[in-house]
Structures are given as structure tokens and as C-alpha cells.
Design a protein around this nucleic acid. Structure first.
Lengths: 137, 137
DNA sequence: TTATTTATGTTTGATAGTCAAACTACTTGA
DNA sequence: TCAAGTAGTTTGACTATCAAACATAAATAA
């Protein structure tokens, strides 16, 4: 297998996912950055600003304003940390949960769609391949 | 294969690629958006503003300022279209070419890295799987 | 040919995302 | 206790983005 050709195809796949995701997000009235925050909080559960900023790859300054806006939209909230008075836990509101679940289902539907012509074995192989590739990050 | 688990893994893979890409781009002194433009012009060759905007998924207004900045960085240039005087062709400068090739090699290295534990057959299977998934976009 | 419509790219005003650096409040370790 | 470190916010500067208004040119209709 030519690495050049494979590399090109991986990038192409990545681009298609990005375009698809952009479309879905745009329909939800959120920006990409806002959606990303919702995704992480949805998956991780209550999480500190610091940790969330690290996962998003932004500074806490950036996150502060981002969370301000999401709080204004009533999608998540700051809850004071019990033992550290400098800190907050960010968690989804019910509205945020609902949005997160919808988005999650969109992903699931896309996966099912993409798997239509895959045998059980091919799916398992793909899964293993993805796992194996991720060991290199 | 559980679609839920597979979906999660695809997203995870996507996120890892994004994080990797962000790191590479940041090191080059460009923003993600600027890099994306360079990538497309690099792959497509001389391209009209209109078409480039469509490929990037932005309005021409957004692209105008983006190209202004890349032109200021001497990475690409506007060349008047021969037959349509409203239009420009965007093309990379030598400096832009160099940057594009470097970035291209980064991708190639990553692919080679990820393929270290893959047999020839596994690579070919992965390639086919990616192609098959992309039919659904 | 001459209007009318359509298309290309730019400009402008408004909203977001982003960082670095300065700042406040709190926690930790010596 | 007190110096150093940490969590989050604020500010200033720059970039990305869109929608809408605009100028110019091309294409189509009359």
C-alpha cells in the first residue's frame, strides 16, 4: 500500500467528517467551539474549568468567555467546587443534556449509515485498526 | 460490532487527528483557517476565489480578508483571470509551496508512523474501508 | 444593441474565538 | 505564617465569520 495514497485518503476522510460536523453544528445554533465544549462536558460529566480548557486546547481566558455564553444560553452552569473555593465544576443543564443526546444520536446514525455495506468482520477489523493507529498519538 | 462503541472510536480518532493537526499548524505560525486555505490551493493548484470559498465552506467576504492576510505573508497571490475580469486565480508563491510541501510531509510521516504495526493486507483493507465509508457523504 | 438579471469579489458592522499578560482570590508547602 | 503556586477572570489586540450593501463585469433577454 502506497503511504502517499493512504495519507491522502485519511485526510479526505477527515475533511468529510469535518464538513459533515460543521453542517450538523450549524443547524443547532451553536458555534463549533461551543459544541465542542458541550461534547466534552457531556462525555466527561462535571469537570473543572482548568481540565476542560486543557481538553479543548485553549487558555482559561478563552474558556471563561465561552462558558459565559453557554451559561447565557442555559446549556450548562458553573457549580462551586466543594473543597476548592477558587474552582468551579461545569455541568450540563437539562437543556444541555438534551442537546448533547441529540448530537450523540446524529453521530450514531452517521456511523450506522457508513457501516451499511460492512460485514461484521470488516467492522471489527476497522475498529481494531483505529485503535491501533491511535496508539501512535 | 456495537455501533455505539465504533462511533465513539471514530470520534476519538477524529479528535486525535485534530489535536495533532492543531499542534503542527501552530508551529508554522499560521491559523487553522489560513492553513486550510494553503492546503486546498496546494492540492488544487490555481483556483478561483469563489471555488475556494465553497471548498472552505465560508463566504467570499470571509475569504477576501483571509487571502489578504496570506498575501501579506507572501504565501499566495491573486492573479487576474484571463477571460473573466471580475475574477482572480489564487496560487501559491514559492514560499507557500515550500510550506505546503512541509506540511504534506508531516502528514505522510504521521501515516507511516501509524502504519508501523500494519501488515500490507491490513493497510489495503483500511484503505478500502475508508473509501467505502466516504461513499455515504 | 440595450436592458435586465446574474455572478464575482470587496467592504462594513456585528458577534465570536483566541492568546498573552495582568489581576484577584485561594491553596499549598516550607 | 508567608512565599510560591494555582484557578479563574479581565483586558487589549488580532483573527474568523456572516449577512448585507456595494461595485464591477458577464450573461441573458428583449
Amino acid at each position: 500500500m502506497d503511504a502517499e495514497e493512504l495519507s491522502k485518503t485519511i485526510i479526505e476522510f477527515y475533511e468529510k467528517l469535518t464538513t459533515w460536523e460543521d453542517g450538523v453544528v450549524k443547524g443547532s445554533g451553536l458555534t463549533t467551539a461551543q459544541n465542542h465544549a458541550i461534547e466534552i462536558v457531556g462525555h466527561e460529566g462535571a469537570i473543572k474549568m482548568r481540565k476542560l480548557a486543557d481538553k479543548l486546547g485553549v487558555t482559561t481566558g478563552t474558556l471563561t468567555v465561552s462558558i459565559d455564553r453557554l451559561e447565557k444560553k442555559a446549556l450548562l452552569r458553573r457549580v462551586p467546587h466543594k473543597s476548592d473555593r477558587r474552582s468551579y465544576l461545569i455541568e450540563l443543564t437539562e437543556k444541555g443534556q438534551k442537546l448533547f443526546k441529540m448530537h450523540h444520536n446524529h453521530h450514531l446514525n452517521l456511523t450506522r449509515e457508513m457501516m451499511t455495506d460492512f460485514s461484521e468482520q470488516e467492522q471489527a477489523d476497522l475498529y481494531q485498526s483505529l485503535k491501533k493507529m491511535m496508539e501512535h498519538f
